[in-house]
């Protein structure tokens, strides 16, 4: 445990330490909910923020996050490092991330298997990479650099994709497993992304989960998606984070925690933000599933013993 000022040692109203992330459900922290959270101190496992939203120099976002951080564990989710870009990492941006990590001492720091910058332009979307030896080398080099600079383990998130690359010679799960093995990084399993990508790519999600390395998974993301169709009228799911988690994704999630046990789980809802109660309700549902899985595993162990 890193040394920390006393102000960050105060316990949450929930009785859990704000510095450790237990296998509970969290939600994405949105400015629209700052006041509500500070006033009513809801019983939430943790909050997650997009790192880049707190890279302004000062102002209300830092004031609120500092206060909320006193009472809750935090997960820092980067969306701008562009780990999959075929160019050196933006060193300044990496140092900004390191400063944010020092300031807020998050329990988890995650980024995406994607790229979002080219040349001087930031494209503000998580773009897909081909799964080749060339990409593997550059992604691993970037993750090594991030983990070295931050002095801690990074969680890498599986992507949602709409196209595949003709040149890919690794499966997505094989590629991710190899990155985790080579870099010693942790993983963030986005179960909605599994459903979206498997639907869009014509893969079997059960097989995807069979092949996905679960032991390095430190966090799960759950989110809602929109439905469209491609040119051949096949279903094309869009990772929109604008609605409740669908039943198929809840089913895949139940399977993952049934196989592996409870894992800190985040409800991601970034667009068309609902009332706090609806968002919190999704987190409560994830916790109920985690509790079910824990009690089933307990019974299995008792029976086996």
């Amino acid at each position: 445990m890193r040394e920390r000022s006393n102000s960050l040692r105060r316990d949450a109203g929930t009785g859990s330490s704000p510095d450790t992330l237990r296998a509970r459900a969290g939600v994405g922290l949105k400015p629209a909910h700052y006041q509500r959270i500070l006033e009513s101190r809801p019983d939430v496992g943790f909050f997650e923020v997009h790192a880049e939203n707190y890279m302004g120099e000062g102002g209300p976002p830092h004031r609120y996050l500092s206060e909320i951080r006193c009472h809750y564990a935090l997960s820092l989710h980067g969306v701008g490092l562009s780990i999959g870009a075929a160019r050196p990492l933006d060193r300044e941006h990496l140092l900004r991330l390191a400063a944010l990590v020092r300031r807020y001492q998050p329990a988890l720091v995650s980024e995406h298997l994607a790229w979002s910058s080219h040349g001087a332009t930031f494209l503000n979307d998580l773009l897909p990479v081909p799964y080749t030896a060339e990409t593997l080398g550059l992604v691993c080099g970037h993750i090594d650099q991030v983990q070295e600079t931050l002095g801690r383990q990074l969680l890498l998130e599986n992507p949602s994709t709409y196209v595949a690359f003709a040149e890919s010679d690794w499966s997505e799960t094989g590629f991710i497993a190899e990155v985790a093995r080579r870099c010693g990084c942790a993983l963030l399993l986005d179960v909605n992304n599994v459903h979206v990508s498997c639907t869009n790519q014509g893969w079997d999600p059960q097989r995807y989960l069979d092949e996905f390395p679960l032991s390095p998974v430190r966090e799960i993301h759950l989110a809602g998606h929109a439905s469209d169709a491609d040119a051949a009228d096949r279903p094309l799911l869009i990772d929109s984070h604008d609605r409740e988690v669908c039943d198929t994704v809840w089913g895949l999630y139940a399977r993952v925690i049934g196989d592996f046990g409870p894992i800190p789980t985040l409800i991601e809802w970034d667009q068309c933000l609902p009332a706090w109660e609806t968002l919190h309700g999704q987190a409560l549902r994830a916790e109920a599933l985690m509790n079910d899985s824990a009690s089933i595993r307990e019974r299995v162990r008792a029976t086996a013993g």
Binding site: A164, A166, A229, R234
Partner: peptide, 16 residues
């Protein structure tokens, strides 16, 4: 090189 599950380029997918 951006393809759909049948190996063909698909503009609607790229358009996402």
């Amino acid at each position: 090189e951006c393809i759909d599950p049948s190996g063909r380029p698909d503009m609607r997918r790229f358009a996402v």
